[in-house]
Amino acid sequence: MSDAFQLAHAFTARWEGGLSDHPSDPGGLTKHGVSLRWVQDLARQAREECRRLLRSCDGCTERSTPQCGWYSLDLDMDGDVDADDIRACTRAQAAALFKARFWDRLHCKALPLPLAVTLYDGAVNMGPARAARQLQRAMNVTGEAQLDHYSPIAEDGIMGPRTQELAEALAAAHLDFYAARLSLRLRETFYRDLAARRPSMRVFLAGWRNRARSLAQYLAELERGAA
């Protein structure tokens, strides 16, 4: 695994603890940040993709290999994806799932470190599309206010070439840490709004806000180390 991913996951892993099954958590049974709802959604999507491609398990060269989207979710290797897989999930399996589903799919390694770390943790905590949109919004606000030459990017949750170009421009102007911190402020606003809309989620608000503030401190440590 890359050094950048290890730096990102080192923070995120602090906040994704052991086995839990909080009644207000829509993800259900969760361990090391891997929730039953999430892995079952991924398993369903993998099955649907195979059906779309008219591909069956019989004779499939990827069956029972890490390349099989469904097989990689059968963490206890008993032929199904259920609560027992969450209970069996190890820290290494959680890290591998997060790297494949968030870090790699969002092209985090193509981003300056503070933006990559912020995006990755947000994706694990809130979902990739929302985290990406927040980061794009922060980058647009920063670019418009502080770059001499700036073209806005779409806030569409897709980390494509235009988003990467703006990220590089912000880093060249030493604004990447600033944009990352602004993204965290947007995250806190989202948390407060979510808790206001869904009272059952208020129990998590203090922890969410502490996580965002702790990440701001982690970014400050990375910034001092890069100076």
Rank of each mutant, 00 (worst) to 15 (best):
G17F: 12
G17Q: 08
L19E: 07
D21R: 03
G27E: 08
G27C: 08
L29Y: 08
T30A: 00
T30V: 05
T30Q: 01
S35D: 11
S35C: 12
V39M: 08
R44Q: 12
R47H: 14
E48S: 06
R55Y: 12
R55M: 12
D58K: 09
G59A: 05
T61W: 13
E62K: 11
E62S: 14
R63C: 04
S64V: 05
T65C: 08
C68N: 09
C68G: 09
Y71D: 04
L73T: 01
L73A: 05
L75C: 01
D78M: 02
D78R: 06
G79Y: 09
D82C: 07
I86S: 01
A88S: 11
T90W: 10
R91H: 13
A92N: 06
A92I: 07
A94L: 10
A94Y: 10
L97G: 03
L97N: 04
K99V: 12
K99P: 08
A100M: 08
W103G: 02
W103D: 06
R105D: 13
R105Y: 15
R105T: 11
R105N: 11
R105G: 05
L106G: 02
H107G: 02
K109M: 08
L111C: 08
L113N: 01
P114C: 00
L115S: 00
V117W: 05
T118K: 00
L119A: 02
L119P: 00
Y120V: 00
D121K: 00
G122A: 01
V124H: 01
N125A: 01
G127I: 05
A129F: 14
A129I: 12
A132D: 05
R133I: 14
